[in-house]
Amino acid sequence: MNLTEHYNQLYKKSSEAIRSGNYILDPQLNSETDSRFGITVLIRPNETVKTNIQLFLAALKEVEPAQYYYPDSDIHITVMSIISCSEEFRLDQISPNDYIGVICKSLVDLDGITIKFKGVTASPSALMIQGFPTDESLNNLREKLRDDFKNSDLQQTIDSRYTISTAHATVMRFQEELQHPEELMQIVEKFRDFDFGEFTGENLELVYNDWYQRERNTIHLADFRI
């Protein structure tokens, strides 16, 4: 996949939707009864990148303070959703050690994963930082995880919703009607090609998480040094 082209097409379509009022609010963000959980392999950006992301979010908050902004603790890149979030899944249905073993197998001979965060894109319901892997390490790991889990007898839903191929980080979601959509998009345009920084992930995490990867609802299952 050409990530630049993908992000550009997504931005063009979504920015038009946001400006015309056809964005999508997330009704579950403040729900006390949202019980969608899953397990995920993820990687987190370093402190420098997160500081730069918060500069962007601070500018957005000036014009749209009522939206949902990700704290540093929740910002991540999804490497693979092993079991997609659903109301039916609970951690006591599986043995985490079995999953840890498969992931360890997938990590054999893995090179470090370096990702450059440059620019901002959008969906009809969120704003994201554009991530660009500098080599094929992330894609190679994803293919190994797909193969190793599909060749196991463990419960998994890999690629059931969509085939993951990007390296973006979602940082803001629409939870209230936009008060200043044009001003919001003007700020987004200013950061459209902003260099948020590059980092090399040294640690992968396996977590039991809610839909939004909120720290307060996350159970950390394992770390993997790479």
Rank of each mutant, 00 (worst) to 15 (best):
T200W: 11
I219V: 15
D111M: 07
S152Q: 02
L25G: 08
D135G: 14
M172A: 03
S20V: 06
D72V: 14
N140K: 14
Y69A: 09
K190V: 10
R36A: 11
N203A: 10
V41R: 00
I113K: 03
T48M: 01
V79G: 02
E198M: 13
T33R: 09
D26G: 05
L206K: 04
E215P: 05
R173W: 02
Q67P: 08
S14E: 03
A17H: 08
R216S: 05
Y11G: 00
E47F: 07
F196G: 07
I113P: 04
E64G: 15
D109F: 13
E16L: 13
N97Q: 15
T166N: 14
F224I: 06
D223P: 06
I158N: 04
P27C: 15
L221W: 08
E143W: 05
Q175D: 08
R142G: 04
F174W: 06
L154S: 04
T40V: 06
E182S: 12
N22H: 13
I75Y: 03
R214V: 10
N22Q: 12
N2Q: 11
I158S: 12
G119Y: 00
L127G: 07
T218D: 01
I39R: 00
V41E: 00
E32F: 02
I115T: 09
L178P: 03
A66H: 11
Y208Q: 03
D193A: 11
S165I: 10
E189M: 13
N52L: 14
I18N: 09
E202C: 13
Y23D: 01
R161Q: 14
P133D: 06
S152C: 14
K150Y: 15
E177I: 12
L10S: 12
T163R: 15
Q67K: 04
L138S: 02
F196R: 08
L10R: 11
H180D: 15
T218H: 06
S14V: 11
T163P: 03
I219S: 03
Y7F: 15
K118S: 11
D147E: 05
Y212P: 01
T200S: 14
G101F: 06
E87N: 10
V49H: 00
R173A: 04
A17F: 05
I103P: 04
D72N: 15
E5M: 10
V188Q: 01
K116G: 03
Q54Y: 05
D193Y: 07
S14Q: 05
V188P: 08
N217E: 07
L138Y: 11
G21F: 08
Y68C: 07
N140P: 08
I83Y: 00
T4Q: 02
I83H: 00
V41N: 02
S84I: 01
P45N: 12
L3T: 06
R192K: 14
Y68M: 09
E47M: 10
N209Y: 02
V207M: 06
S86R: 01
W211V: 09
C85G: 11
D195S: 13
N30Y: 09
M1C: 13
S125Q: 04
Y23G: 10
Q186M: 08
Q155Y: 05
F199Q: 06
F224Q: 11
A59H: 09
G131F: 08
P65K: 12
D223H: 12
K118L: 03
Y99P: 10
F174R: 01
N140F: 09
L184Q: 07
I18F: 09
F196L: 03
N2M: 13
